[in-house]
Design a binder for these strands. Structure first.
Length: 857
RNA sequence: GCGGGCGUGGCGGAACUGGUAGACGCGCUGGAUUCAAAAUCCAGUUCUGGUGACAGAGUGUCGGUUCGAUUCCGACCGCCCGCACCA
């Protein structure tokens, strides 16, 4: 009923009607359009945009509620707030749906978006919907293709060979999640690692900058910065060569040249060029390599696999001893992508090398001995020693500390001309090619005459074809009858389009910049990004701690290099929220059951409407596979959006996992009703703005409670401690509810108005309706945030604990500025203290002002 | 396997920079109101012993630093996240 009449004093708060009314009212007044051209400070609040899977789940509800609270809070504090929403719309699920349900991925995706947009709108989010876009909109990916061409021009894009998971039966490339126990998820055939020529972004050209930039991200969680730091994996080491028995030299990289005298083998990656060469003449080696390639490309799988090796028969000469030969093996745990793809193995001081040496009965000689241990007797069992210590069994390195030994070994190798000290990074270049039909086409053309040629900018966007056939093997784009055929942009002759599409991480690496001006004719408009970026508060799941955030940081630097932005770091503030969990239920036959299918009686769970008991399992992340899901839509239908929002903010700290319970939701619903009652049932309030006279006694107590709540909630919301803000709101509501009947009306009004404004960002519909009931014609959404009076926040009496030998024996009440001697005296006079001292004289009395007294007896 | 995190009553959690452990909510118990139920209101609720005042124990486990440790350090146990083609 937009524009209708708001009815006062309903006995019970009708959330459904109220929410509909206020959502329409916000819409009508354009309350959440992004303010521009103003002298006020800006605040860009962004939540990680969703994949349009088909429905909003609790994780979304939690994420978007938090962002919405910040957006509304900052708006009330006088910021220009940008709070947009969009869709991360390319990706595998649409292809799976297309294959399984014979639907068009585009239609499927946009239908999902429509459903989810409607669900999000029910939550009453303060979002500027005029800026919405989906990454599968040609209007978006057209600009992404332009960025790709600019990056190519700037030398940030190149083509190279890379491994993929190859399903030999389906003749298709598989994603890691489509490889289950080394087999293709559809065909069941053992997966092979295969090389393809693919596109890369040169993210490693920013390795050092991406690492150094982490130190500037003060409002990022420490754990995320640490994870990124480890991911980039900067290490100082030595790159040097072994002379091989066949006259060749083999380059290896090591961060531990100090352990060279503990070496017992040299190992090559199965993908090392030398391995491939040797395998041509050694059928057994070729078979071994093929076996290694069955692991797929996932690093986890490779590292978890049993350590296997194959002796090539070649020997490597120890660089410090021409008479010392080490066997050269091919080992499945040596990664081609790191260092040189070849290592020397020192089993005593590296766990993987040790596992390998034990299996193949190779020598394990400790060369670093922890301080305090005897070099003659120190041995290594099943656990490699990686700690500090001094060198032993190492000739000229003996007695040196690890760092000194590293330096000495490196110096000698360098002097011999066999190697150089280098900095190595674990970070690899970003492989962006995907052999998938539902992604952003890579704007390149292959011409027999001219080679690989960039598409013309005037031809952008290179659109996906309208009809994609999914019942083919391999990449449907490559099999499309006409799509790939085009004219070469250079010579005009017949040529073929690149049929690879971009990794969907590319789509999400710059969407935050596009939101600042979604109408711009270029990828971004300079004025808009200069004004709005960086994002002031970014919120999303911890699962994105590394890849998405690192790629976005790279993209921002690449966009700086190509002249689009002036900054390096896209997200000034980052918050990673926890997951939403729920109990799991299984029937007698072991099958999972939906929470909807069970009911609880006397602490047991039964199949709804029966006496069949249900097995209650532990609380786990809500997932369709375990059926432990509760749909936000259902909860909104029953209780309304404010209830689910309040639940999402209550109790659990936002970075931790949250458990959904029906009882908790009912508690939130009761609190919604309680606030409504507090506001509607308080009689005799003076008109808004009425001044209050001198206030003392119960009135003063209520004023103190009000201003303490304002101060605490303000701090808590600014620090994203939503659960604490919620607790403070409960305290204020309790104080108002239990206030003495004689308290002045103007004091009550102040308390109620504060309560309503404080819940404004969290339960916006209820707040608007209470605000109207309190006689205001304005919107809470347009009302400034309340200010706490510092004089009322300060306490006039302090309660201090008094301990004897660290055990609490009583409390004393003192003035905040009480002298230490007076505090001491009243502490020693306490009954409990006298009893605990039992006549003994205190040795020492520690008084920590305003906090505690500890008497040491 | 490697990297990162978390662990406090029956449950979710609070405790700022090492200073009264359990704020606030859920649940439960008792009472008021009601023909009854829902809703609401009042009281209680870490555990053990005690009618009680009170005493003892207690923040995953074990040990350490300190006048004092949920907080700092070491080892261990359990759970969770990421590992480059899920998003």
């Amino acid at each position: 009923m937009p524009g209708g009449v708001w009815r006062f004093g309903m006995a019970r708060y009708n959330a459904k009607e109220s929410e509909k009314y206020w959502q329409a009212e916000w819409d009508r007044r354009g309350a959440f359009r992004t303010p521009e051209d103003s002298a006020r400070p800006k605040c860009y609040v962004l939540e990680m945009f969703p994949y349009p899977s088909g429905s909003i789940h609790m994780g979304h509800a939690r994420n978007y509620t938090m962002g919405d609270v910040i957006a509304r809070f900052r708006r009330a504090q006088g910021f220009n707030v940008l709070h947009p929403m969009g869709w991360d719309a390319f990706g595998l699920p649409a292809e799976n749906a297309a294959r399984e349900k014979k639907v068009d991925p585009r239609e499927w995706t946009y239908a999902n978006i429509a459903t989810m947009r409607a669900q999000l709108k029910l939550m009453g989010l303060a979002i500027d919907w005029e800026r919405e876009f989906a990454t599968c909109d040609p209007e978006y990916y057209r600009h992404q293709q332009k960025l790709f061409l600019d990056f190519f021009e700037a030398g940030l894009v190149y083509r190279s060979e890379a491994d993929v998971n190859w399903d030999p039966v389906d003749q298709t490339v598989l994603a890691n999640e489509q490889v289950i126990d080394g087999k293709g998820w559809r065909s069941g055939a053992p997966v092979e690692r295969r090389k393809l020529s693919q596109w890369f972004f040169r993210i490693t050209s920013f390795s050092e900058e991406l690492l150094a930039g982490l130190d500037t991200l003060e409002r990022w969680p420490e754990k995320v910065r640490l994870m990124q730091k480890n991911w980039i994996g900067k290490s100082e080491g030595l790159r040097f060569s072994f002379d091989l028995s066949d006259g060749r030299a083999l380059d290896v990289f090591s961060t531990r040249p100090d352990t060279l005298f503990g070496a017992s083998f040299v190992a090559l990656s199965p993908d090392h060029p030398l391995t491939e060469e040797l395998a041509k003449k050694d059928a057994k080696l070729a078979a071994f390599v093929a076996e290694c390639r069955r692991t797929g490309t996932a690093e986890e799988a490779i590292e978890k696999a049993e350590k296997l090796g194959y002796d090539t028969g070649l020997k490597a000469v120890h660089p410090f001893d021409a008479g010392w030969e080490l066997p050269v093996v091919v080992a499945n745990f040596v990664l081609m992508g790191y260092g040189t793809g070849a290592i020397f193995g020192c089993p005593a001081h590296d766990q993987r090398d040790l596992d390998f040496a034990r299996k193949y009965k190779l020598p394990v000689l400790p060369v670093v001995v922890p301080d305090g241990a005897d070099p003659k007797t120190f041995t290594v069992g099943d656990e490699a020693y990686t700690g500090p210590g001094h060198l032993a069994n190492s000739r000229f390195l003996d007695g040196l500390e690890v760092d000194a030994a590293k330096a000495e070994a490196a110096k000698r190798i360098e002097a011999m001309g066999k190697g150089t000290r280098t900095t190595n990074y674990r970070l690899r270049d970003w492989l962006v090619s995907r052999q998938r039909p539902w992604g952003c086409p890579i704007p390149m053309v292959h011409c027999a005459k001219c080679g690989v040629v960039p598409a013309r900018e005037s031809d952008l966007p290179i659109r996906l074809p309208d009809k994609i056939a999914f019942d083919v093997r391999g990449n449907p784009l490559a099999h499309h009858p006409s799509w790939k055929h085009t004219a070469c942009p250079a010579c005009g002759g017949p040529a073929e389009r690149e049929t690879d599409t971009l990794d969907t991480f590319v789509d999400s690496s710059w969407y935050f910049a596009r939101f600042t001006d979604t109408k711009a004719e270029t990828p971004v408009s300079t004025d808009a990004v200069d004004y709005w970026l960086p994002v002031d508060q970014y919120i999303g799941g911890i699962e994105h701690a590394i890849l998405h955030l690192l790629y976005s940081r790279f993209f921002t630097r690449a966009m700086k290099k190509t002249g689009y932005v002036k900054l390096d770091e896209p997200f000034a503030g980052l918050f990673t929220q926890g997951m939403v969990c729920h109990e799991t239920y299984r029937g007698q036959n072991g099958g999972w059951l939906l929470p909807d299918e069970i009911e609880k009686r006397d602490n047991k769970a039964y199949l709804k409407g029966s006496d069949t008991e249900v097995i209650v399992g532990p609380s786990e992340k809500m997932s369709k596979s375990r059926k432990n899901v509760v749909a936000p839509e259902t909860i909104i239908e029953i209780f309304g959006a404010d209830t689910i929002r309040w639940f999402m903010l209550s109790d659990t700290p936002p970075e931790r996992d949250l458990e959904w319970t029906d009882e908790g939701a009912e508690g939130c619903w009761r609190f919604v009703q309680r606030i409504h009652r507090l506001v509607t049932e308080t009689v005799g309030l003076p008109a808004p703005g009425t001044a209050m006279g001198d206030v003392s006694g119960a009135g003063l107590e209520l004023r103190r409670a009000t201003h303490r709540a304002i101060a605490a909630v303000t701090d808590d919301l600014a620090a994203l401690r939503f659960n604490r803000a919620v607790a403070r709101v409960y305290e204020l509501a309790n104080a108002i509810g239990s206030a003495d009947a004689g308290v002045d009306g103007a004091v009550r009004r102040e308390a109620l108005e504060a309560l309503v404004l404080l819940i404004g960002p969290m339960m916006p519909h209820l707040a608007e309706s209470c605000w109207r009931t309190l006689g205001h014609q304005t919107l809470v959404a347009e009302t400034p945030w309340p200010k706490a009076d510092a004089a009322l926040v300060r306490a006039d009496v302090l309660k201090m604990g008094v301990q004897v030998n660290g055990k609490l024996r009583g409390t004393i009440e003192v003035a905040p500025d009480a002298a230490e001697d007076a505090v001491k005296a009243s502490a020693l006079a306490l009954d409990g203290v006298v009893r605990a001292l039992d006549g003994k004289t205190p040795k020492r009395v520690i008084v920590v002002p305003r906090r505690i007294v500890n008497i040491v007896a």
